[in-house]
Design a protein around this nucleic acid. Structure first.
Lengths: 224, 224
DNA sequence: GCATATATTTAAATTAGTTTAAAAATAAAG
DNA sequence: CTTTATTTTTAAACTAATTTAAATATATGC
């Protein structure tokens, strides 16, 4: 990686921008960044201008922000670190999956490269974090997986839960209550046209109705 | 603990002041803090005045700084976190003991209390870190140990190395080269009046001469 | 195509922490 | 006890990041 030193704040901006651009065909608006960072639009404008002058991203007035290759490289390393720490917190320390993000948020700033390399080995080079999100390798490459949201499944389809899109505590705790975790088997018993909700069988044991919002927030890998 | 939020910088100051006061009968001078923090005396004066107004320490113009009970409590927690992370880095990740401090420096700022509690359990509630320094428990209590510096031993005295006072990379690497680590057995073969150096037998295998400075930087527990 | 609403940027002020240089206090030495 | 050296504090200025309010673009409705 480059020998550019980022402030904690710049790191947080990069990660936020990366996440937004991922869902937004490559571009992030000032307001989206501001609400994601819990700050004002004015602060964002100021910061992205400074970051653009440091060549961390591309910025055009009133047109939003795009990460360039440098910004992507940094953001990817941040995501890598954060997700490795999430695996550590969950698998080694036994922390519940609804509390991982807050703790990993701080840990992602640890920038001793040797720590991260050794952590990865210690964890057995995991490819996915406890929420099912892919962990980029040291070169920044993600392991891709064909997945779809539960929303796209049809009646009688069977699948395995591979990731959660929404990672709010409340959603994760709700999934716990339903007995759903990464790896759970599910089957669509019924599609309810009325509100696009679905009746789902979980692990061949419990049946439950999921709203369309919930279905969208669960990523699955279709089986048969 | 209190619901006071400290900045990263305030945390660093507290830890530095704690370490200085430990060796300095309870008080830390502006200059000592400045050199320990690699900053200017003016910055220190400014900072300790602000910290004093936040009741984190006692400050009297031209008289230096003393930690009060609040400051001690915070500093102790920081030291607890830092030393637990050092154990993790060394025992779990296999990091060499001359590289622990830099990495733990960053990790000590992690302030998710649950992470620290679980980390402690994961590590088996160690009482000492890889440099032999005591790890305070959650209540801030240190496990004391009777130890002395190798400097104070006399001819024929036998002892076990329990801690290193100087934790610079170069000193730790030097100890590695001598085959000395925490737990090593040593015996004083000869006291050299001339310069207060000593000839030492290490683990009943190798003999080597240590300067008085080296002897002062090694803490031991006397055996017989 | 204009009026309005929304999004974004600029400007000015604020805070935490820093620096350098000058001023003041303390300590040391004759 | 006075001079000098050292330490510490104050003052003024600077940087990164923020806020609020005002100004300016862009987008939308009719």
């Amino acid at each position: 990686m480059q020998d550019i030193q980022l402030s904690l704040t710049e790191e947080d901006y990069l990660k936020a921008i990366f996440n937004i651009t991922e869902k937004n065909r490559g571009t992030a608006s000032t307001n989206d960044i501001a609400s994601s960072m819990q700050t004002s639009a004015a602060a964002v404008t100021d910061m992205v201008q400074r970051m653009a002058s440091r060549k961390l991203l591309d910025y055009e007035k009133y047109k939003g922000v795009k990460l360039n290759s440098v910004g992507i490289a940094f953001a990817t390393q941040l995501i890598r670190k954060e997700r490795l720490w999430k695996v550590f917190l969950h698998q080694k320390l036994g922390m519940d999956w609804d509390k991982l993000n807050d703790a990993a948020e701080q840990l992602k700033h640890i920038n001793t490269i040797e720590v991260i390399r050794k952590l990865e080995l210690f964890l057995g080079s995991p490819k996915y974090d406890p929420h099912g999100e892919p962990i980029p390798n040291a070169d920044g490459r993600f392991t891709l997986r064909n997945q779809t949201s539960l929303f796209n499944l049809r009646k009688t389809d069977r699948a395995k839960v591979v990731a959660v899109r929404n990672q709010s505590s409340s959603f994760l705790q709700f999934l716990d209550d339903c007995g759903i975790s990464i790896g759970s088997q599910i089957e669509v018993l019924q599609e309810i046209d009325f509100d696009l909700s679905k009746r789902i069988m979980i692990n061949d044991q419990t049946s439950i109705v999921f709203s369309s919002k919930i279905c969208q927030d669960l990523y699955v890998k279709q089986l048969n």
